[in-house]
Amino acid sequence: GATAVSEWTERKTADGKTYYYNNRTLESTWEKPQELK
């Protein structure tokens, strides 16, 4: 079946920190989402 992984995108802030952005829920998080573990 379909997985939720594609909803999350790994992004970088202007100062180079990595965060994760969810295209479906429009939420962002510093922690790696469960779906990516």
Rank of each mutant, 00 (worst) to 15 (best):
G1L: 13
G1E: 11
G1F: 12
A2C: 15
A2P: 13
A2R: 12
A2N: 12
A2T: 14
T3A: 14
T3N: 12
T3R: 11
T3W: 04
T3G: 13
T3I: 13
A4R: 11
A4E: 12
A4H: 13
A4P: 14
A4F: 06
A4Y: 04
A4I: 14
A4S: 13
A4Q: 13
A4W: 04
A4L: 11
V5I: 13
V5N: 13
V5Q: 13
V5F: 10
V5W: 11
V5L: 14
V5C: 12
V5R: 09
V5D: 14
V5S: 13
S6W: 07
S6K: 09
S6V: 09
S6E: 14
S6Y: 09
S6H: 12
S6D: 11
S6Q: 12
S6R: 09
S6I: 10
E7W: 04
E7R: 03
E7F: 06
E7L: 03
E7C: 10
E7D: 15
E7Q: 06
E7I: 04
E7A: 06
W8S: 00
W8M: 01
W8V: 02
W8Q: 01
W8F: 02
W8T: 02
W8K: 00
W8L: 01
T9H: 10
T9L: 10
T9D: 11
T9Q: 15
T9P: 00
E10G: 00
E10H: 02
E10P: 06
E10L: 03
E10M: 05
R11C: 15
R11T: 06
R11H: 14
R11S: 05
K12P: 02
K12M: 12
K12Y: 12
K12D: 03
K12A: 06
K12F: 10
K12R: 10
K12Q: 12
K12H: 11
T13H: 03
T13S: 08
T13L: 04
T13A: 07
T13G: 07
T13E: 04
A14M: 09
A14E: 11
A14N: 08
A14L: 10
A14H: 12
A14T: 08
D15C: 14
D15A: 09
D15F: 05
D15R: 04
D15M: 05
G16Q: 03
G16N: 05
G16Y: 02
G16S: 03
G16K: 02
G16F: 03
G16A: 02
G16M: 02
K17A: 07
K17R: 15
K17H: 10
K17S: 07
K17I: 09
K17V: 08
K17D: 08
K17T: 09
K17Y: 09
K17F: 07
K17L: 10
K17E: 10
K17Q: 09
T18M: 06
T18W: 05
T18R: 06
T18F: 07
Y19G: 01
Y19T: 01
Y19P: 01
Y19L: 04
Y19F: 10
Y19M: 04
Y20E: 01
Y20Q: 00
Y20M: 00
Y20L: 00
Y20N: 00
Y20G: 00
Y20F: 07
Y21H: 07
Y21L: 04
Y21M: 04
Y21N: 01
Y21P: 01
N22W: 00
N22G: 00
N22V: 00
N22R: 00
N22L: 00
N22E: 01
N23Q: 10
N23C: 15
N23A: 10
N23Y: 11
N23F: 08
N23I: 15
N23E: 15
N23M: 14
N23P: 10
R24P: 01
R24D: 06
R24G: 06
R24V: 15
R24A: 10
R24M: 10
R24Q: 10
R24T: 10
R24N: 09
R24K: 12
R24S: 08
T25K: 01
T25W: 01
L26S: 13
L26Q: 15
E27G: 03
E27R: 04
E27V: 08
E27F: 04
S28Q: 11
S28Y: 12
T29G: 02
T29F: 08
T29R: 14
W30H: 05
W30D: 06
W30M: 08
W30S: 07
W30A: 05
W30V: 05
E31I: 12
E31M: 05
E31R: 06
E31Y: 07
E31L: 08
E31N: 07
K32N: 06
K32F: 05
K32W: 05
K32E: 09
K32Q: 11
K32I: 11
P33M: 02
P33R: 02
P33S: 02
P33W: 01
Q34V: 13
Q34I: 13
Q34M: 13
Q34R: 07
Q34S: 10
Q34A: 14
Q34K: 10
Q34P: 15
E35Y: 07
E35D: 11
L36P: 07
L36K: 06
L36D: 08
K37I: 14
K37G: 15
K37V: 15
K37Q: 15
K37W: 14
K37N: 14
